[in-house]
Design a protein around this nucleic acid. Sequence first.
DNA 1: GTCCTTTGTTGATCCTAATCAATAAAATCT
DNA 2: AGATTTTATTGATTAGGATCAACAAAGGAC
Lengths: 239, 239
Amino acid sequence: MQNRFIDKLGHYVALSEAEVDALTRATSTSRKITTKTDLIREGDRPGPVFVMLEGWAMRYKVLPNGSRQIMAFLMPGDACDLHIGLLAQMDHSIQTITPARVATISRTHMDELLDRYRGIAKAMYIAQLADEGTLRAWIVSMGRRSSIERVAHLICELFVRARGGDLTSTTFEIPFSQIILADALGMTPVHINRMLRELRTRDIISLRRGSMSVMNPSALASVAGFDENYLHRRARSPA
Amino acid sequence: MQNRFIDKLGHYVALSEAEVDALTRATSTSRKITTKTDLIREGDRPGPVFVMLEGWAMRYKVLPNGSRQIMAFLMPGDACDLHIGLLAQMDHSIQTITPARVATISRTHMDELLDRYRGIAKAMYIAQLADEGTLRAWIVSMGRRSSIERVAHLICELFVRARGGDLTSTTFEIPFSQIILADALGMTPVHINRMLRELRTRDIISLRRGSMSVMNPSALASVAGFDENYLHRRARSPA
DNA sequence: GTCCTTTGTTGATCCTAATCAATAAAATCT
DNA sequence: AGATTTTATTGATTAGGATCAACAAAGGAC
């Protein structure tokens, strides 16, 4: 057990000892970041690749009318786009949701790792494809699911991403305010509150201020119509 | 002027002659595909990379209740994910919307191109990042824009992607039925029809059965609140 | 050419979720 | 500790878009 990032990549691909070492070195220096801190802002020239070692963050955008839309959550083990450095400017911002510990890998160092270690490259490409699948799944949710299904689906997704696909395990805490949830799902905090109340009444989740826990994962998956295939937790078997 | 794929990559990165040659060879054999044909289906093991040379296609998913959500449009020059072959199974389907001509590049050939030609690799990574930006922009639209804004925003996006960023150019035809539009924007065909009527009444677009044309791009952009930065049409300048 | 299916169009009604509003309860600040 | 801000909660009302329905028009199939 190294760190959450190496764990996650190692889940996709069996990494060699040299690869684990290289990743360990690449993420050995990290910064503590306080909550609600922008790691990078829309319009900025992209810098290094960020790796979340502890804590949560979100990708988001604020529209001219002031409303905010969250487009992704980053949890421990997640990295932002590996080739991000190729872009002229960021099209969105990234901000911490909780206190966090973040490692950075420079663009040249990242390129070197991808070049030199096939296992790392493969694992990171799979991670990127899984992230894209997640974006598509959010589009499906926003377009074709009711509000309570959307809420349940997002919670399921986070649960599976954090727990490694085990929907049967015990409770799991998500450190989101209802405002965060609203801005991720394209709803109002008032309506989120009502949908959460409904799930709580059915003993599917429990709520504390600023966080919630899953009590009954299978009931939650049933409300959501959750199918986890888009998270691609099983890599392709060797042809 | 080779084909739309090479044009598009060449827009991101100045390709060497050898790179253009390699891409020309890689896309020299192509198939004609009739409209409404699945190129690949959800659950399938991913095959080669598809390159759209002519015609349009869409990524979509059908939910258990029968409703469909479209998550992306592919137009001439677009390719599906370059590392798609790494996944165990597709999490969505891809289907042609019009008659199309499609080239395929095998996984091993793709890897070879990325390995050998830095310009191709860079251009394709930028294209992939732009696709991700597009997915995020769709999430923003679905979450935080009104229905008429959503319609206008999608048309703007397609216009800019097809025209190379020139929002001032003349009319441009989009070969979508209103049903396609509805399934892309998470709305009903009835409501799409009303929003299109509104745009038509204002002389912003014109409609024919099965397609529409943009008459007044700047008025359209104004309705949409369109900011094209997410399409990343300008690559990073050399540091 | 005729039949049949798909797509487009409009009107009437309903319902989900937004908005408006007021209060409570934490959390953060100084 | 007290003041201020943020977050959660509930009720009342409104509105945007869905649903239901009916028909027209175009395109494909045979």
